[in-house]
């Protein structure tokens, strides 16, 4: 079976500056895949390029067997691949309900039904749908951003560091939600700094270093891989310091 998402030899970056050099990543139907790597490795940049936020300098991306390489962000969403940025991922002056409605902007009908379904997945949002998003905590914002991305029933959810800057409790909570979403058949491709927790829950992982994919392995195997520990020495040191 062909993978749901297949990014082949993708190079991308900002302006003229190439940050990601010919990286290939694929995600099967319903699979949870995590990209890890040190700061500045180009993980988020790669995800943004796949999501159509950044242009691809070269390489191809196919989604569900269709070439989606040149598609802009709104067209990728329409194709069934939603993206959640790491920061500034909610509309601060809009209410929770309105944020979700914006995620369903392309829906022709059934927006309010889908808002109710998504709210039901996030009880902390369901309690006060009229609350302005700027008043939400970091974890609630992340939940809202993920909820927004689910509004069009995507087949692939792309998450850029969904647990960054969250407390350990909130981190667990968000990871639980991501697993729950995956259990409903939505494939997930995420970039994570909290490598251990993310890999423990992932089917597969990729390690990106200096804009190149250096390793691809099953999530749990990668956890036990001494090379991964070595690659993350800097990160581990930073984590233990914080």
């Amino acid at each position: 079976m062909n993978p749901l998402l297949e990014a082949t030899e993708v190079s991308t970056g900002y302006g003229e500056l190439e940050i990601v050099h010919g990286v290939s990543v694929d995600v099967d139907q319903g699979e949870l895949v995590t990209i890890i790597g040190p700061n500045g490795a180009g993980k988020s940049t790669l995800l943004k390029a796949i999501a159509g936020v950044l242009p691809k300098f070269s390489g191809t991306v196919t989604f569900d067997g269709r070439d989606v390489t040149p598609l802009s962000a709104p067209k990728m969403v329409a194709a069934g691949a939603s993206f959640v940025p790491q920061t500034d991922n909610v509309f601060p002056s809009l209410s929770i309900r309105e944020n979700l409605e914006m995620g369903g902007y392309q829906r022709v009908s059934g927006v309010s039904d889908r808002v109710a379904e998504v709210l039901a997945m996030f009880p902390e949002l369901e309690r006060r749908p009229g609350e302005q998003a700027s008043n939400l905590s970091g974890g609630q914002r992340q939940a809202l951003a993920i909820g927004r991305a689910l509004m069009l029933d995507p087949r692939l959810l792309m998450l850029d560091e969904p647990t960054a800057a969250l407390s350990p409790v909130m981190r667990e909570e968000i990871f639980d939600r991501i697993e729950e979403i995956r259990s409903r058949g939505v494939a997930v491709l995420m970039v994570e700094q909290n490598a251990k927790e993310a890999l423990a829950r992932s089917d597969r992982g990729y390690v990106l270093v200096a804009g190149e994919a250096v390793l691809e392995q099953a999530g749990r195997e990668m956890l036990d891989n001494p090379d991964v520990g070595r690659l993350f020495l800097g990160l581990e040191a930073a984590e233990s310091a914080s």
């Binding site: 936020v53 802009s72 709104p74 969403v77 329409a78 940025p85 500034d88 509309f91 601060p92 309105e98």
Partner: peptide, 14 residues
């Protein structure tokens, strides 16, 4: 209003 808040996120939202 969403585009006024954050045009890049508006694109990402579709």
């Amino acid at each position: 209003r969403a585009t006024s808040d954050n045009p890049e996120l508006a694109e990402i939202a579709g």
